[in-house]
Amino acid sequence: MKALIHEKTPGMEGLSYRDAEAPSPSAGEVRVNVKAAGLNHRDLFVLHRHKPEDPPLVLGSDGAGIVESVGEGVAGIRPGDEVVINPGLGWHKNSDAPPKGFEIIGLPDDGTFAEQIVIPAENAVTKPSHLTWEEAGVLSLPALTAYRALFTRGDVKPGMKVLIPGIGSGVATFLLQFAKAAGAEVYVTSRSETKLQQALELGADRAINSNSDWEKELNGEKMDLVIESVGAATFNQSLSQVRTGGTLVTFGASAGDEIKINLRTFFYGQFNMLGSTMGSGEEYKEMLQFIETHHIKPVMDKTYALHQYKEAFQRLDEAEQFGKIGFVIS
Protein backbone atom coordinates (compact mmCIF):
# COMPACT_ATOMS: atom_id res chain seq x y z
CA MET A 1 0.00 0.00 0.00
CA LYS A 2 0.96 3.67 -0.29
CA ALA A 3 1.39 5.64 2.94
CA LEU A 4 2.73 8.91 4.33
CA ILE A 5 5.52 7.87 6.68
CA HIS A 6 7.74 9.76 9.12
CA GLU A 7 11.17 8.38 10.05
CA LYS A 8 14.74 9.22 11.07
CA THR A 9 14.64 13.03 10.80
CA PRO A 10 12.48 15.42 12.90
CA GLY A 11 10.11 17.73 11.06
CA MET A 12 8.92 17.71 7.45
CA GLU A 13 12.31 16.44 6.24
CA GLY A 14 11.47 13.05 7.77
CA LEU A 15 8.22 12.67 5.81
CA SER A 16 7.92 10.60 2.65
CA TYR A 17 5.09 9.21 0.55
CA ARG A 18 6.10 5.65 -0.28
CA ASP A 19 5.22 1.99 -0.36
CA ALA A 20 4.66 0.20 2.93
CA GLU A 21 3.55 -3.26 3.98
CA ALA A 22 -0.23 -3.55 4.35
CA PRO A 23 -1.23 -4.46 7.93
CA SER A 24 -3.27 -7.55 8.84
CA PRO A 25 -6.00 -7.59 11.51
CA SER A 26 -5.53 -9.67 14.64
CA ALA A 27 -8.31 -10.91 16.91
CA GLY A 28 -10.76 -8.11 17.71
CA GLU A 29 -9.46 -5.86 14.92
CA VAL A 30 -10.63 -4.77 11.49
CA ARG A 31 -8.77 -3.60 8.39
CA VAL A 32 -10.21 -0.52 6.72
CA ASN A 33 -9.59 0.66 3.17
CA VAL A 34 -9.20 4.38 3.84
CA LYS A 35 -11.17 6.60 1.47
CA ALA A 36 -10.32 9.99 3.00
CA ALA A 37 -8.43 11.43 5.96
CA GLY A 38 -8.08 14.74 7.76
CA LEU A 39 -5.04 16.83 8.68
CA ASN A 40 -4.82 18.19 12.24
CA HIS A 41 -2.42 20.35 14.22
CA ARG A 42 -1.58 17.16 16.08
CA ASP A 43 0.10 15.90 12.91
CA LEU A 44 2.37 18.96 12.92
CA PHE A 45 3.32 18.23 16.54
CA VAL A 46 3.94 14.54 15.80
CA LEU A 47 6.62 15.52 13.28
CA HIS A 48 8.73 16.56 16.27
CA ARG A 49 7.41 14.19 18.96
CA HIS A 50 8.25 11.14 16.85
CA LYS A 51 11.92 10.46 17.63
CA PRO A 52 14.61 9.49 15.10
CA GLU A 53 15.28 6.24 17.00
CA ASP A 54 11.58 5.23 16.85
CA PRO A 55 10.28 2.84 14.16
CA PRO A 56 8.81 4.41 11.00
CA LEU A 57 5.36 5.83 11.67
CA VAL A 58 2.30 6.36 9.46
CA LEU A 59 0.85 9.74 10.45
CA GLY A 60 -2.80 10.72 10.69
CA SER A 61 -5.58 10.50 13.28
CA ASP A 62 -8.72 11.19 11.25
CA GLY A 63 -10.13 8.92 8.59
CA ALA A 64 -13.09 7.13 7.07
CA GLY A 65 -13.39 4.17 4.75
CA ILE A 66 -14.78 0.72 4.00
CA VAL A 67 -14.11 -2.34 6.15
CA GLU A 68 -12.04 -4.74 4.05
CA SER A 69 -11.59 -7.64 6.48
CA VAL A 70 -12.18 -8.54 10.13
CA GLY A 71 -10.15 -10.46 12.66
CA GLU A 72 -11.21 -13.41 14.79
CA GLY A 73 -13.98 -12.72 17.29
CA VAL A 74 -15.29 -9.54 15.66
CA ALA A 75 -19.08 -9.24 15.73
CA GLY A 76 -21.43 -6.53 14.56
CA ILE A 77 -19.21 -5.29 11.75
CA ARG A 78 -18.62 -6.88 8.36
CA PRO A 79 -16.55 -6.34 5.21
CA GLY A 80 -18.22 -3.68 3.10
CA ASP A 81 -19.42 -1.58 6.05
CA GLU A 82 -18.83 2.16 5.64
CA VAL A 83 -17.20 3.56 8.80
CA VAL A 84 -15.63 6.57 10.41
CA ILE A 85 -12.61 5.99 12.63
CA ASN A 86 -12.66 7.03 16.28
CA PRO A 87 -8.98 7.94 16.85
CA GLY A 88 -9.10 7.48 20.64
CA LEU A 89 -7.71 4.18 21.92
CA GLY A 90 -8.62 2.85 25.37
CA TRP A 91 -11.14 5.47 26.52
CA HIS A 92 -14.52 3.78 26.35
CA LYS A 93 -16.91 5.40 28.85
CA ASN A 94 -17.27 9.09 29.67
CA SER A 95 -15.18 10.03 32.70
CA ASP A 96 -13.57 13.05 34.34
CA ALA A 97 -10.33 12.38 32.48
CA PRO A 98 -8.87 9.80 30.10
CA PRO A 99 -7.82 6.52 31.75
CA LYS A 100 -4.19 5.55 32.05
CA GLY A 101 -2.93 4.17 28.75
CA PHE A 102 -5.19 6.31 26.56
CA GLU A 103 -3.60 6.95 23.17
CA ILE A 104 -4.54 8.51 19.84
CA ILE A 105 -4.09 6.86 16.47
CA GLY A 106 -1.11 8.32 14.61
CA LEU A 107 1.38 8.13 17.52
CA PRO A 108 2.50 5.74 18.87
CA ASP A 109 0.43 3.47 16.58
CA ASP A 110 0.26 3.86 12.80
CA GLY A 111 -2.37 6.30 11.59
CA THR A 112 -4.77 7.02 8.77
CA PHE A 113 -2.53 8.57 6.09
CA ALA A 114 -2.36 5.27 4.23
CA GLU A 115 -4.46 3.20 1.88
CA GLN A 116 -5.21 0.76 4.70
CA ILE A 117 -5.27 0.81 8.50
CA VAL A 118 -5.90 -1.81 11.18
CA ILE A 119 -7.83 -0.64 14.25
CA PRO A 120 -9.80 -2.20 17.12
CA ALA A 121 -13.26 -3.12 15.87
CA GLU A 122 -14.89 -0.81 18.44
CA ASN A 123 -13.13 2.16 16.82
CA ALA A 124 -14.86 1.58 13.48
CA VAL A 125 -18.24 3.31 13.79
CA THR A 126 -21.01 3.53 11.19
CA LYS A 127 -20.45 6.52 8.88
CA PRO A 128 -23.18 9.21 9.07
CA SER A 129 -25.12 8.85 5.83
CA HIS A 130 -25.37 12.60 5.14
CA LEU A 131 -21.59 13.02 4.91
CA THR A 132 -19.43 12.59 1.82
CA TRP A 133 -16.25 10.56 2.16
CA GLU A 134 -14.20 13.77 2.30
CA GLU A 135 -16.41 15.17 5.07
CA ALA A 136 -16.40 11.93 7.05
CA GLY A 137 -12.63 11.65 6.70
CA VAL A 138 -11.94 14.94 8.49
CA LEU A 139 -14.59 14.62 11.18
CA SER A 140 -13.53 12.61 14.18
CA LEU A 141 -10.74 14.28 16.17
CA PRO A 142 -11.88 17.92 15.86
CA ALA A 143 -15.59 17.16 16.27
CA LEU A 144 -15.03 14.97 19.32
CA THR A 145 -12.70 17.57 20.87
CA ALA A 146 -15.32 20.28 20.29
CA TYR A 147 -18.16 18.12 21.63
CA ARG A 148 -16.47 17.31 24.94
CA ALA A 149 -15.22 20.87 25.47
CA LEU A 150 -18.62 22.40 24.78
CA PHE A 151 -21.07 19.87 26.24
CA THR A 152 -19.33 17.60 28.75
CA ARG A 153 -16.98 20.21 30.20
CA GLY A 154 -18.64 23.52 29.26
CA ASP A 155 -22.21 22.32 29.92
CA VAL A 156 -23.59 24.63 27.23
CA LYS A 157 -27.27 25.49 27.46
CA PRO A 158 -29.73 27.34 25.19
CA GLY A 159 -29.44 31.11 25.53
CA MET A 160 -25.87 31.09 26.87
CA LYS A 161 -23.32 33.52 25.48
CA VAL A 162 -20.31 31.61 24.12
CA LEU A 163 -17.02 33.12 22.95
CA ILE A 164 -14.70 31.21 20.59
CA PRO A 165 -11.35 33.02 20.13
CA GLY A 166 -9.32 32.23 17.01
CA ILE A 167 -12.06 31.05 14.67
CA GLY A 168 -10.80 29.16 11.64
CA SER A 169 -9.49 25.85 12.91
CA GLY A 170 -11.40 22.65 12.43
CA VAL A 171 -12.29 22.41 16.13
CA ALA A 172 -13.36 26.07 16.27
CA THR A 173 -15.68 25.71 13.27
CA PHE A 174 -17.28 22.66 14.91
CA LEU A 175 -17.62 24.61 18.17
CA LEU A 176 -19.45 27.36 16.31
CA GLN A 177 -21.85 24.95 14.60
CA PHE A 178 -22.43 22.87 17.75
CA ALA A 179 -23.05 25.90 19.97
CA LYS A 180 -25.54 27.38 17.51
CA ALA A 181 -27.33 24.05 17.20
CA ALA A 182 -27.53 23.96 21.02
CA GLY A 183 -29.25 27.35 21.03
CA ALA A 184 -26.36 29.48 22.26
CA GLU A 185 -25.42 33.00 21.20
CA VAL A 186 -21.97 32.73 19.66
CA TYR A 187 -19.18 35.31 19.43
CA VAL A 188 -15.87 34.70 17.64
CA THR A 189 -12.54 36.46 17.15
CA SER A 190 -9.85 36.37 14.46
CA ARG A 191 -7.10 38.57 13.08
CA SER A 192 -8.38 37.76 9.58
CA GLU A 193 -11.30 39.82 8.27
CA THR A 194 -11.94 37.06 5.73
CA LYS A 195 -12.33 34.46 8.48
CA LEU A 196 -14.58 36.79 10.47
CA GLN A 197 -16.87 37.13 7.46
CA GLN A 198 -16.83 33.35 6.92
CA ALA A 199 -17.77 32.85 10.58
CA LEU A 200 -20.73 35.21 10.24
CA GLU A 201 -21.87 33.28 7.18
CA LEU A 202 -21.57 30.07 9.21
CA GLY A 203 -23.89 31.47 11.87
CA ALA A 204 -21.82 33.50 14.35
CA ASP A 205 -23.83 36.27 16.03
CA ARG A 206 -20.83 38.59 16.32
CA ALA A 207 -17.30 38.48 14.92
CA ILE A 208 -14.59 40.81 16.24
CA ASN A 209 -10.99 41.42 15.23
CA SER A 210 -8.53 39.85 17.68
CA ASN A 211 -6.33 42.94 17.53
CA SER A 212 -9.12 45.21 18.73
CA ASP A 213 -10.23 46.03 22.29
CA TRP A 214 -12.49 43.05 23.00
CA GLU A 215 -14.17 44.77 25.93
CA LYS A 216 -15.09 47.73 23.76
CA GLU A 217 -16.14 45.62 20.78
CA LEU A 218 -18.43 43.55 23.00
CA ASN A 219 -19.91 46.68 24.63
CA GLY A 220 -19.01 45.32 28.04
CA GLU A 221 -21.04 42.12 27.54
CA LYS A 222 -19.63 39.16 29.43
CA MET A 223 -19.69 35.53 28.39
CA ASP A 224 -21.20 32.55 30.17
CA LEU A 225 -18.65 30.29 28.48
CA VAL A 226 -15.36 30.84 26.68
CA ILE A 227 -13.71 27.97 24.78
CA GLU A 228 -10.02 28.84 24.59
CA SER A 229 -7.56 27.02 22.33
CA VAL A 230 -5.17 29.74 21.14
CA GLY A 231 -3.07 29.89 24.29
CA ALA A 232 -0.84 32.64 25.67
CA ALA A 233 -1.61 35.12 22.89
CA THR A 234 -5.28 35.42 23.86
CA PHE A 235 -5.73 33.68 27.22
CA ASN A 236 -5.98 36.71 29.51
CA GLN A 237 -8.20 38.55 27.04
CA SER A 238 -10.43 35.48 26.97
CA LEU A 239 -10.52 35.24 30.76
CA SER A 240 -11.41 38.92 31.06
CA GLN A 241 -14.57 38.32 28.98
CA VAL A 242 -15.95 35.65 31.35
CA ARG A 243 -18.88 36.80 33.48
CA THR A 244 -18.75 36.51 37.26
CA GLY A 245 -19.24 32.82 38.00
CA GLY A 246 -18.73 31.89 34.34
CA THR A 247 -16.56 29.19 32.82
CA LEU A 248 -13.48 29.00 30.60
CA VAL A 249 -12.64 25.67 28.97
CA THR A 250 -9.16 25.29 27.48
CA PHE A 251 -7.98 22.51 25.18
CA GLY A 252 -5.11 24.00 23.16
CA ALA A 253 -2.08 26.24 23.28
CA SER A 254 -1.00 26.78 19.69
CA ALA A 255 0.25 30.30 20.52
CA GLY A 256 2.21 29.42 23.66
CA ASP A 257 1.49 27.54 26.88
CA GLU A 258 2.96 29.79 29.58
CA ILE A 259 0.65 32.44 31.04
CA LYS A 260 0.24 34.61 34.13
CA ILE A 261 -3.12 35.35 35.67
CA ASN A 262 -4.19 37.62 38.51
CA LEU A 263 -5.33 35.23 41.22
CA ARG A 264 -7.33 37.86 43.11
CA THR A 265 -9.26 38.72 39.97
CA PHE A 266 -9.80 35.01 39.39
CA PHE A 267 -11.14 34.07 42.81
CA TYR A 268 -13.15 37.25 43.31
CA GLY A 269 -14.72 36.55 39.93
CA GLN A 270 -15.71 33.06 41.09
CA PHE A 271 -14.51 31.79 37.71
CA ASN A 272 -14.37 28.15 36.65
CA MET A 273 -11.45 27.00 34.50
CA LEU A 274 -11.55 23.50 33.04
CA GLY A 275 -9.15 21.53 30.89
CA SER A 276 -10.37 19.27 28.10
CA THR A 277 -8.91 17.00 25.47
CA MET A 278 -10.45 14.63 22.91
CA GLY A 279 -13.23 12.46 24.38
CA SER A 280 -14.44 8.95 25.14
CA GLY A 281 -15.98 6.38 22.83
CA GLU A 282 -19.31 7.07 24.53
CA GLU A 283 -19.04 10.79 23.73
CA TYR A 284 -17.96 9.95 20.18
CA LYS A 285 -21.24 8.15 19.53
CA GLU A 286 -23.19 10.98 21.20
CA MET A 287 -21.38 13.45 18.92
CA LEU A 288 -22.25 11.45 15.80
CA GLN A 289 -25.90 11.36 16.87
CA PHE A 290 -25.83 15.13 17.44
CA ILE A 291 -24.46 15.91 13.99
CA GLU A 292 -26.97 13.57 12.37
CA THR A 293 -29.88 15.11 14.29
CA HIS A 294 -28.81 18.63 13.32
CA HIS A 295 -27.46 17.66 9.89
CA ILE A 296 -24.09 19.25 10.67
CA LYS A 297 -21.22 18.90 8.21
CA PRO A 298 -17.54 19.76 8.59
CA VAL A 299 -16.49 23.05 7.04
CA MET A 300 -14.16 21.95 4.26
CA ASP A 301 -11.24 24.24 3.50
CA LYS A 302 -9.24 22.38 0.87
CA THR A 303 -8.69 18.77 -0.17
CA TYR A 304 -5.46 17.26 -1.49
CA ALA A 305 -4.21 13.95 -2.84
CA LEU A 306 -1.99 12.30 -0.25
CA HIS A 307 1.14 12.79 -2.36
CA GLN A 308 0.49 16.58 -2.14
CA TYR A 309 1.14 16.44 1.60
CA LYS A 310 3.75 19.23 1.56
CA GLU A 311 1.22 21.78 0.33
CA ALA A 312 -1.36 20.60 2.87
CA PHE A 313 1.04 20.74 5.84
CA GLN A 314 2.25 24.19 4.80
CA ARG A 315 -1.31 25.53 4.57
CA LEU A 316 -2.09 24.29 8.07
CA ASP A 317 1.22 25.47 9.53
CA GLU A 318 0.63 28.98 8.18
CA ALA A 319 -2.96 29.03 9.53
CA GLU A 320 -4.39 29.85 6.11
CA GLN A 321 -7.32 27.44 6.46
CA PHE A 322 -10.92 28.02 7.49
CA GLY A 323 -12.24 24.63 8.50
CA LYS A 324 -10.71 21.30 7.66
CA ILE A 325 -7.93 20.25 5.32
CA GLY A 326 -8.50 16.77 3.91
CA PHE A 327 -6.75 14.06 1.94
CA VAL A 328 -8.41 11.91 -0.71
CA ILE A 329 -6.73 8.52 -0.49
CA SER A 330 -8.68 5.94 -2.48
Rank of each mutant, 00 (worst) to 15 (best):
L163T: 14
R153G: 01
M160H: 04
E134R: 14
D109Q: 13
D155M: 09
L163S: 15
E115T: 14
G170Y: 03
S129M: 10
A114M: 14
S169E: 07
S129N: 09
A149N: 02
S169P: 00
A146G: 06
L141Q: 10
Y147P: 02
T152R: 08
T145N: 06
G168F: 10
T152Y: 03
T145F: 03
Y147Q: 01
A121R: 07
L150R: 00
T112Y: 10
A124P: 00
V162H: 07
T145K: 02
P142Q: 10
E115K: 15
R148L: 03
S169T: 14
D109W: 03
E122G: 07
A143V: 02
A124G: 02
G159A: 08
T152I: 02
E134H: 12
H130R: 07
H130M: 08
E135K: 13
T112M: 14
A149K: 00
K161P: 04
G154K: 02
G170S: 15
I167K: 12
P158S: 05
A149M: 08
G159R: 01
Y147K: 00
I167L: 13
T112W: 10
Q116H: 12
E122H: 13
L150G: 04
D155F: 05
A146M: 04
E135A: 11
F151S: 01
I164M: 07
E134W: 07
G137A: 13
D110P: 15
D109L: 13
G154I: 03
P120M: 14
G137W: 09
E134M: 15
A114K: 12
